[in-house]
């Protein structure tokens, strides 16, 4: 997890770092806390002298604690940390953040770094890229370099590692100059592979925030299954979305797959730019799902087995 300080004096900053190192060394904390930039932090310690930055820092569900002396004025409701920082108070703050990260509510709202990465990857389709390139650390053992303008990424590890990533975990995304890309040493991969994989990962969080789950959705092209890591269910979903589908609930009903599978597919297809909202009337009505257990479906299952094609339930 990420901890950041904003506006602290040099002495307070040093004190904070020393306390964090000691807490990590003696195992007082469950998470592997690191000092990061405020935009990537779960917890921010803000000096009272910079209180004007509180509203902005409070966004994105961060925990912001204002380091305040007795003479400092702090807005009502703001969390405070008494100056000078004491180790017990810091530990309590970080343990609170750890506890929240493991609560159901936090689970529902966690995955923010993943959503941020998804947003960045989505922008590569729109040619509005952020910075020259990005470095992603903490998702895979090897760093991941993203080159939006080349529509490529670099990572020496298989994307299978990425698929095991726990969406509740924190990781870092940092802009880097294009000259820092490992072009000479590593083989690039198509960015669609990463967009698809990140989309699948976000499926546990529901549809991506900018997707209207009730809108009629349709593929404008099929996922390149021959290069994308995918499950057999995704082929069925692609077939379903080759026609306009009246939103995610309708897709669940039609395919008889669970919400996670449908959201994963929709998010992956959206990030790759395969999906669009359609103003056509949905040609597969919701009522159809009740009758799809018919003979054709049984035949399809029979044919899959005979061909040795892996199948999924549903």
């Amino acid at each position: 997890m990420g901890l950041a300080e904003v506006g602290l004096s040099e002495a307070d900053g040093r004190r904070l770092r020393a306390m964090l190192m000691m807490a990590l060394a003696d195992g007082s904390l469950r998470a592997r806390w690191r000092l990061v930039d405020a935009s990537h932090a779960r917890v921010v310690i803000l000096d009272a002298a910079k209180i004007d930055r509180l509203p902005r820092l409070n966004q994105d569900n961060r925990i912001v604690a204002v380091l305040a002396g007795t003479a400092d004025s702090v807005p009502a409701g703001a969390r405070t940390l008494d100056w000078p920082i004491r180790a017990e108070a810091l530990l309590a703050l970080l343990r609170d953040a750890e506890a929240q990260a493991h609560s159901p509510r936090a689970d529902a709202t966690s995955g923010r770094p993943l959503i941020r990465l998804a947003e960045l990857l989505r922008r590569t389709n729109l040619h509005a890229t952020h910075g020259d390139a990005w470095l992603v650390t903490g998702m895979t053992r090897a760093p991941m370099y993203i080159a939006p303008q080349r529509k490529q990424f670099f990572c020496t590890e298989s994307l299978r590692t990425l698929h095991r990533f726990d969406v509740r975990n924190d990781f870092e995304i940092a802009p880097i100059p294009a000259t820092a890309l490992p072009i000479a040493n590593e083989r690039p991969k198509p960015i669609a592979m990463l967009q698809w994989s990140i989309g699948l990962l976000t499926g546990t969080l529901g549809p991506l925030p900018w997707i209207d789950a009730s809108a009629t959705l349709q593929l404008q092209r099929f996922p390149e299954f021959q290069i994308l890591h995918h499950e057999p269910a995704h082929r069925r979903l692609a077939a379903a979305f080759s026609r306009p589908v009246a939103g995610i609930d309708a897709a669940i009903e039609i395919t008889k797959l669970d919400r996670h599978a449908v959201c994963s597919f929709v998010n992956g297809a959206e990030l790759c730019g395969y999906l669009r909202t359609s103003d056509q009337p949905p040609s597969v009505a919701r009522s159809a799902a009740r009758t799809t257990g018919g003979s054709k479906r049984s035949l399809v299952q029979l044919l899959r087995r005979a061909l040795g094609i892996e199948t999924t339930d549903g």
Binding site: V284, T292, G294, K296
Partner: peptide
């Protein structure tokens, strides 16, 4: 694998056309 992938997608299209036929 490529041939099987095409066949599986074809079977999926068939399966989903089932929905439409019945609708």
């Amino acid at each position: 694998e490529h041939v099987l992938m095409m066949l599986d997608v074809l079977l999926s299209m068939l399966e989903m056309s089932d929905c439409e036929d019945e609708t």
